[in-house]
Nucleic acid binder design. Sequence first.
DNA 1: GCTACGGTACCCTTACATCA
DNA 2: TTGATGTAAGGGTACCGTAG
Length: 204
Amino acid sequence: MSHHHIDDDMVFISQLYPGSYTEMTTQGETKSRRRRNKKKGAQNESAAARKRKLSAEQVKLLELHFGNEHKLESERKDRLASELGLDPRQVAVWFQNRRARWKNKKLDEEYSSLKKLHETTIVENCHLQNEVLKLKEKLSEAEKENQRLRESGSNSPTSSQTVQSVGAVEPPFLGEFGEVYDYDMFSMPETHYINGMEWVNLYM
DNA sequence: GCTACGGTACCCTTACATCA
DNA sequence: TTGATGTAAGGGTACCGTAG
C-alpha cells in the first residue's frame, strides 16, 4: 500500500503539531519526538488538527500485521509507517496500545472462564451439602427405626440377644464426619436403602 | 569489565473524540 | 449537556545491545 491509498484529508500528527516536536539527532539521522499540546479544549486547534483517528484503511493494515506478529521490529515498523504514511512513532504507539487491548481482552476472557468455573463449583457444593443433609436425615430415621425394633423386641429374649450380640461384635460405625453411630448400617431395613447413585437423581 | 546511551516493551495516565 | 467508552499519545521504568 502506498500514500495514494491514504485519505486525501488525512493529516499527520507531525503536521498537526509542528511546533510541539522537538528534534533529536541520533547517529547522523534526525528523529522527531512528539510533545502533545496539553491545552484543554480544542478552541486553539483547527478542524483538521482535531482529526486524530487513523483511517479505516490504516487500521485494517495495522490489524493485519498485528495478527501475524504482536511484536514490531524496527525494520517492519519503518516499512509499515511508510506504507501507511504515518510517523514510525505512531506505528509503534499503535502496536503498544493494541498489545494492551489484546492483553485486557485476554484477561477478561480468563476472568469470565474462572467466574464460570467458580459458579459451577458453588452449585456443586450446594448439591453436596443437600446430599449430606438428606443422608443425615435418613440416618436419623434409621436410628429411630432401630431403636423402635429394639424396644418392641425387648419382650423376646432371643431377638434382643441377637441385636445386642451384633452390636458387641461389630465396631461402632464411624461416619464421614467423625460421628460414632451405634447401629449396624448393614442391618438397615431394605426399605431404607437407596440403591446406588439414586440420590443423584434427586438433584439433577 | 564498566559506563553511557539509544531503542523498545510494558505500564499507567492523560487528552480528546464519539456516542447514547 | 453529560457521563461512559474507546483510542492516540505522554511519560516513567526496566532491560538489552552496543560503542567507547
